[in-house]
Simulated scan of single mutants.
Amino acid sequence: MTTPSESHPRHRLDDLLHAPIRFSIIATLGGADNAEFSFVRDTIEVSDSVLSKQVSTLEAAGYVKVKKGYVGKRPRTWLSLTPSGRAAFEKHLEALREIANS
């Protein structure tokens, strides 16, 4: 039997996405097929090391794909949402909307 507290939308919030920096990363990637590491870093206003650590956490969860390559001779890193990352973000947003509208 479901208790009233278990039916509250907050139980559907994703703990990984609840952290402001990880939420910002996912939100930034949600609007594009992929984005350069530097673009995401500058958009969410964090250092390389902070972004790298949080991207590693999201990658380990299967939410973000990291692709490394070169543009000319310069190394580049591109980030993109995986299908499960996009689905998790949508579910998280839906729960937030339910909370805000209740």
Rank of each mutant, 00 (worst) to 15 (best):
F23P: 00
L81H: 00
Y63F: 15
P20R: 13
I99V: 10
P4K: 14
D42G: 15
V50P: 04
N34G: 06
A27V: 14
T82W: 03
A100Q: 04
V50Y: 05
S102H: 12
P20D: 02
S47Y: 07
S52C: 10
T3E: 13
T77W: 00
T28E: 13
T43M: 15
A32N: 10
P9I: 09
L79I: 02
E94R: 09
E36I: 09
K53I: 15
L13C: 05
H11P: 01
E98Y: 08
W78F: 11
M1L: 06
S56N: 12
S84F: 04
S24V: 04
P4G: 10
T82N: 05
I44E: 00
A19Q: 04
N34P: 04
S52F: 12
T77P: 02
A100R: 10
G62V: 03
S84T: 12
T3L: 11
K91N: 10
P75V: 11
E90Y: 03
R97D: 11
R86E: 04
Y63E: 02
R10I: 08
A60T: 15
L17W: 01
K91Q: 12
K67C: 10
T43F: 14
E90A: 08
V50C: 09
S102Q: 13
V64Q: 01
V55H: 06
A32L: 12
E36H: 08
P20I: 05
E36A: 13
G72D: 11
T82D: 04
A60W: 14
L58K: 01
S84R: 11
K67P: 03
L51D: 00
R22W: 00
P83R: 07
L51T: 01
E90T: 08
R97N: 11
N34F: 05
G31K: 05
A95N: 09
S47H: 08
T57N: 07
K53W: 09
V71H: 13
K65N: 11
S24A: 12
S5P: 07
L93G: 02
R97E: 13
